[in-house]
Design a binder for these strands. Structure first.
Length: 581
RNA sequence: CUGCCCGUAGCUCAACCGGAUAGAGCACCGGCCUUCUAAGCCGGGGGUUAUGGGUUCGAGUCCCGUCGGGCAGGCCA
């Protein structure tokens, strides 16, 4: 028979059932039928629960229905046998020849094996990280980065046209606080006696930026403390008002020079963030500036649109969006009493902009602490007459670091947080990338630093990579040209371990589809562990470099196929596949 | 107080949008290196899926209550 790839084999069997269904229950011919992967090998390679699902509407005994389906199932060379089990499952056992043919497809497709057309080229935007450029990325951002990057890779592999985007919050108050913080440190370094507010950015990196400015421009930004502190309420009175007054004075006192300090701080921090992510294997097609929304008048335009649709109103001097009309708990302010737009206002404009760019689907990756924002953003989209269903917000739970079995401290603002860079330096990029996506994203993550660093069998990173390195080692020992293995006879592959491994390889495209559908890269990570386990088991059960050539070549072809899949999967997760360990 | 998320082996976690006997790893116990990498493999014990009800052929999964944990509830971002 002609080699069917795993994906083709699956759809081949689906079509057989569709034909059987059309004969047994013509009225339900259009029903969507899905094949399950049975957990237990005794249940075959595929299972169909169609009979169970049709039992009720047809008012027929499910086992009887299963009998009828099996009887109506067209013959196929790919099917060894079928059996009816349990309440009415139809278990399908695929022939060894069909499984070997799937391996042939793996060897032909190589790095393309597993790439599917599930997304049908639809444009999808994945926006992630989007941390304020006000300081180094910390370990919480790291999880969003690893999740978002892996997810985007998986979606791309599943046939979507993916665009990765980082939303740069370069317009808000937080940036002003950073600029102020930097300037205050600069003044202090110049010997000016100014206080440093407790709610300003405390980190060492702020001092470094100040030193950089001094080194490049000397005393150009030196001003008197009196002018800066004029009319500023005390910290004890109102810490936030204190900060805001200092910012206002800084803008006054520095005049044109304020823009330089602001821009310098932004450029420095964004650059640092970019480097950090690049080293982490995370890249973006677009870095989208919040400020550009204001400069292009898009914030005002978005609010006009809401205004004209009658979804805004004035109260207490502020402008509100009636988000309660769309299921939110309370209405939200979009423009403050002082005329300033809120963060929410630019977020509305940003999402309008996203939708206007024509994405079939928009995925926002947010920290779980932002879950309260989902309703209002979706509400705003609806209010503007857009289909909020096209937006999916993937909430990523926090990651908590553990060292020596104890929580490692992670407080914000105080400057005492563990940065992503520190984490990467400590455990390495591979361990960080894999550990971050080893859990379902909506699940809290306990990140065990000691485990991530350990070089032993407890560490899943090494477990998977070791499988890859072992294969490379075997192929090198063999010394032949792996290209030749593509066409060798595979009929020697017939042991239970070999058929089990073939079955694992066949599952890969389906794993990609599931991971894409569920937005769940962890499914891929689990699969790779499982594939590595099947390989290690095989490795210990049989010798590859045997005298008999057909057996030797067939086995080498099989492990070469495993290597392709391990590489493809690890690549999507941003983890390296070393050839030697 | 209100809303959202979560609760699965001693520990860390899976379970294919309701399917078959709830699965892995670690830890614990016992085995396997003169042969392609022992960072590996093989075997063993371990569960009332927090708890009480409900829905149906069938529930860890859906609905309600209770207990326990996390996160939100600014004219902050």
């Amino acid at each position: 028979m002609a080699p069917l790839s795993a994906q083709d084999l699956r759809s081949h069997i689906v079509s057989l059932f569709a034909q059987a269904l059309a004969q047994v229950a013509p009225g339900y011919a259009g029903a969507t039928l899905a094949l399950e992967r049975p957990k237990a090998a005794e249940h075959g390679d595929f299972a169909c629960n169609l009979a169970l699902q049709l039992a009720r509407p047809l008012r027929r005994n499910p086992r009887e229905l299963a009998q009828a389906l099996v009887a109506a199932l067209p013959a196929s060379q790919a099917i060894e046998r079928t059996e009816i089990a349990g309440a009415g499952f139809v278990n399908v056992f695929v022939t060894a020849a069909a499984k070997r043919a799937a391996l042939t497809a793996v060897l032909e497709l190589e790095s393309g094996y597993g790439r599917i057309d599930y997304g049908k080229g639809a444009r999808v935007q994945v926006e992630f990280v989007s941390a304020n450029p006000t300081g180094p990325l910390h370990v919480g951002h790291g999880r969003g980065a690893a999740y978002g990057a892996s997810l985007a890779n998986v979606l791309d592999f599943a046939g979507y046209a993916v665009e990765r985007e980082y939303y740069v919050n370069d317009a808000g108050r937080q940036m002003d606080i950073l600029a102020l913080s930097t300037w205050l440190r600069y003044l202090q370094a110049q010997g000016v006696a100014v206080p440093f507010p407790p709610n300003a950015y405390q980190g060492e990196y702020v001092r470094e930026m100040a030193a950089g400015i001094a080194a490049a421009h000397g005393t150009r930004y030196l001003r008197s403390a009196d002018a800066l502190l004029a009319g500023v309420p005390s910290v004890e009175e109102d810490a936030e008002a204190h900060l805001d007054a200092l910012i206002a004075n800084a803008k006054d006192v520095l005049g044109e020079d304020y823009a330089y300090v602001h821009q310098h701080a932004l450029t420095e921090q964004l650059g640092d963030c970019r480097n950090d992510l690049q080293e982490f294997g995370v890249h973006f097609e677009h870095w989208f500036s919040e400020r550009s929304l204001y400069e292009a008048g898009q914030v005002a335009r978005a609010l006009d649109q809401l205004e004209q649709a009658g979804h805004l109103y004035e109260q207490d001097g502020a402008r509100w969006f009636r988000s309660t009309a769309f299921g939110d708990e309370k209405d939200r302010v979009v423009q403050r009493e002082n005329g300033q737009y809120t963060y929410f206002a630019s977020d509305i404009a940003y999402h309008l902009n996203k939708f206007e760019r024509g994405f079939a689907r928009v995925i926002d990756v947010w920290g779980a602490d932002h879950h309260g924002y989902v309703a209002r953003v979706k509400g705003a989209l609806q209010a503007m007459g857009l289909d909020a269903q096209r937006l999916t917000v993937a909430l990523v739970q926090f990651a908590v670091l553990y060292r020596d079995g104890k929580k490692a401290s992670m407080s914000t603002r105080s400057g005492e947080f563990v940065t992503l860079r520190q984490l990467r330096d400590e455990v390495g990029n591979d361990a960080a990338r894999l550990f971050y996506v080893l859990r379902k994203s909506d699940q809290h993550l306990d990140f065990d630093l000691d485990l991530a660093k350990s070089q032993n069998n407890e560490n899943p990173v090494y477990y998977i990579q070791y499988a890859h390195a072992r294969i490379c080692s075997v192929l090198e020992e063999w010394g032949g040209d792996v290209g030749d293995l593509e066409t060798v006879a595979l009929s020697a592959l017939d042991s239970p371990a070999e058929l089990a491994l073939l079955r694992e390889l066949m599952e890969f495209p389906q794993v990609i589809e599931d991971a894409a559908h569920e937005l769940a890269p962890h499914a891929l990570a689990f699969y790779l562990k499982q594939l590595a386990a099947a390989f290690h088991s095989y490795y210990n059960s049989v010798r590859f470099l045997v005298e008999e050539s057909s057996q030797r070549e067939a086995r080498l072809a099989l492990v070469l196929g495993v290597r392709h899949v391990l590489r493809n999967g690890l690549r999507l997760l941003g983890v390296s596949a070393p050839e030697k360990m």
